[in-house]
Write a protein that binds this DNA or RNA. Sequence first.
DNA 1: TGCACGATGAAC
DNA 2: TTCATCGTGCAC
Length: 191
Amino acid sequence: MNATLSVLLMSMLNKLPRAFYARDTVTVAKELLGKYLVHGEKIARIVEVEAYLGAHDLACHSAKGVTPRTAVMYGEPGYAYVYLIYGMYYCTNVVTESAGIGSAVLLRALEPIAHVTARTQGPGLLSRAMNIDKQLNAHDLLSDNFYIAAPSVEETFTLIARPRIGVHYAQEWAQAPLRFYIQGNAFISKP
DNA sequence: TGCACGATGAAC
DNA sequence: TTCATCGTGCAC
């Protein structure tokens, strides 16, 4: 993709306002599907997410209360929560609702749109492909170089809800259908 | 100060 | 099923 085309594509994106994130986490999670994640010149479509509801959700990091790590989740909506998992991958989340709740949406899979060549199926791979690491933790998603936007024309799709991945330790919360993805999309992390 | 354990991904 | 690899949270 050449530079002119990139500029044209970027001009067709409408950056999501703070109010988009300052709502019920499940609503935000579902509505993030089909939106475009932009970091520098890299652009990719969000096709799979998971909702983490806050302190009462045992699968959520914020269930441990306010710690140096979870402080971002307990802050204002529309900021990125990026953390290292298994010592080698970063996971990218967006903070939702209002300060004090501790809720966020984990990005689990993306469909490459522009300047993204590495694999994007799974939270660790997509973070690597989009050049997202701990430097971007607590970064404002209403900034100029790192944000989420709505395309001028959104494709329609069927939304699927399933239990979240890798949260077996969370007792009854492990079964809650809080993973959402676009049915039939080729970039979903797990069938 | 030490240690068990991941919101993963890849190899076997 | 096992392993790479390290920050976090909590026990001591």
